[in-house]
Amino acid sequence: MKVGVLSLQGDVREHVSALIACGINPIEVRTGSELAEVDALVLPGGESTTIAQLSEIFGIFEPIKQRIAAGMPVYGSCAGMILLADSILDAKQGQKTFGGLDITVRRNAFGRQVDSFETDLIFDDGSSDLIKAVFIRAPWVEKVGAGVKVLAVVDSHPVAVRSTTLLATSFHPELTADHRIHRYFIEEVAKPALEKVQ
């Protein structure tokens, strides 16, 4: 399986390292031809407005949107969650997302940087071990559509959700040495989705 990391802006390096630790040799995706090479994609943390804008300028906004609609498995952390959401609140005027995940996300919902925090969470992947979650100017999920499962919550707000092919977290597992979420994406989201297609 070839996994790409959208490498226009943000913490690309950390996602690349996490994927390597999971035995994947990721491709940095900046162009349409690089996108065409990958079976699955990771959208990093960063500024969702900047990433969306650069995607449009360099002509991969529509191709990514279409690949997602056609069933490409995607994992997005923080800005990546915003980019996967069908609908966003507190957005910049006219801010676009790739969409595909039937959720409504509130940007910077936990507040500004002074409110950023880390905590230990239960992540619903069958393990009862807590996971270290780092929230940075993080969004939360305000509304979840049918077919979307909530995997983790903070103060009753969903902060990790999935559909059949898409996974999104408000927090940044790539900033910790625990690669459970990346492994979950590869094993429990991407692999089953790709096997179904074949």
Partner: peptide, 10 residues
Amino acid sequence: RGMAEMLKGG
């Protein structure tokens, strides 16, 4: 430090 990581490439 993580906040600064999110600004990379920008």
